[in-house]
């Protein structure tokens, strides 16, 4: 395989940095448009705990100083930017004084695991089904069953999650109701723990898969119909190639290209989409962290989570951009 041209690489890198910078700025601006003062919320929380708070003005000032919101906006902005570079988003206001980065680091592996697991499964199943819907040698049953299965796509994930919980966890008791792993196992790289995680992750992953595979199936179906009419597919048949080989090497191989771009874009969206799924399964991931942070007006955490989502989307798009010349030779040609 050829090398990636330097100009192309530089171009993509600049795009990556700019995307992150602009996004980070927007994330910072939006909470500051809100009239809510996080220090007052923290004070309110203290007050509701202690019944009454004396010298509240002093405490407010102290809280503001601790949160860094007593400084001029421009100073706050640059502190925030330099902090974001090293993943330092300050301290959570709701879980004060835990650093935001600690919260995120604890939640991220769970979400990444669940998300990547279910995204890969969805991508694989969805695209394969989409391809089979178009392929003229698919069994009749497949062609009838797939459109029927796509009914699930119109169900909101929260409902499918509750439905699955009710059937498989509450009624049949095949799977645990909530949590990311059993409370009886010690976290660590042991078989007990890993199997417990997989066992607990199954239902949340399934609830994501069944509501999202339709996106890939429909997209792939459209792409396959276009590819099916291409001359190179007709010539492949005239060459007497085996039908399965034509399906994989000539049809899916070409139809999948736009889906790969969509895959990268979906990574960021998925964390957001996963918020409610994590919430109902009490799964301690990024989605739940974001959900709680929004409820508690925990600006630093909202900023941190949003930043990580954007970083992951931008990075995956960047990686796909680098990868693309290898999966579609025509792109390399244009860049050279």
């Amino acid at each position: 395989m050829g090398r990636i041209p330097r100009d192309y690489l530089v171009n993509r890198l600049v795009t990556l940095v700019l995307t992150i910078l602009i996004a980070a700025t927007i994330i910072w601006i939006i909470p500051r448009l809100s009239p809510v003062d996080p220090a007052e919320i923290a004070l309110g929380r203290m007050a509701s705990g202690a019944g009454a708070v004396a010298n509240s003005e002093e405490i407010l000032a102290q809280l503001r100083a601790n949160m860094g919101i007593d400084q001029p906006l421009i100073v706050q902005y640059f502190k925030y930017l330099t902090g974001a570079l090293v993943f330092d988003f300050g301290l959570s206001t709701a879980a004060f004084p835990t650093p935001v980065s600690t919260l995120i680091l604890n939640a991220l592996p769970w979400t990444l695991g669940l998300m990547i697991f279910s995204l890969i499964i969805t991508f694989f199943i969805g695209n394969l089904l989409g391809a089979l819907m178009v392929w003229d040698r698919s069994p009749k049953l497949v062609r009838v069953a797939i459109p029927a299965a796509m009914v699930f796509t119109s169900i909101p994930p929260i409902l499918s999650g509750l439905l699955l919980m009710w059937i498989f966890a509450a009624k049949l008791q095949w799977f645990p109701l909530t949590g990311a792993y059993s409370i009886f196992v010690e976290p660590g790289w042991t078989w007990d723990f890993v199997s417990s995680v997989l066992y607990h992750g199954f239902l949340p992953a399934l609830s994501i898969v069944i509501v999202t595979f339709g996106f890939w199936t429909l997209g792939m179906r459209g792409l396959m119909i276009t590819v099916q009419g291409e001359d190179y597919v007709k010539l492949a048949e005239a060459k007497g190639l085996r039908p399965r080989y034509i399906l994989y090497r000539y049809m899916i191989r070409n139809a999948i290209l736009p889906q790969i771009t969509a895959f990268a874009l979906k990574i960021g969206l998925l964390i957001a989409g996963q918020v409610l799924v994590e919430r109902i399964f009490a799964y301690n991931g990024m989605g739940k962290l974001l959900y709680d942070a929004i409820l508690n007006q925990d600006f630093p955490v909202i900023q941190g989570v949003s930043y990580v989502i954007i970083l992951m989307t931008a990075l995956s798009v960047f990686l796909v951009d680098l990868l693309y010349p290898f999966i579609d030779p025509r792109i390399r040609h244009e860049a050279a």
Binding site: D231, K234, A236, A238, R249, N254, R330
Partner: peptide
Amino acid sequence: AYIPQGAMNSLNPVM
């Protein structure tokens, strides 16, 4: 053997 009409598009672009 069949030699097709659309020479421009008769070969698999990714192979």
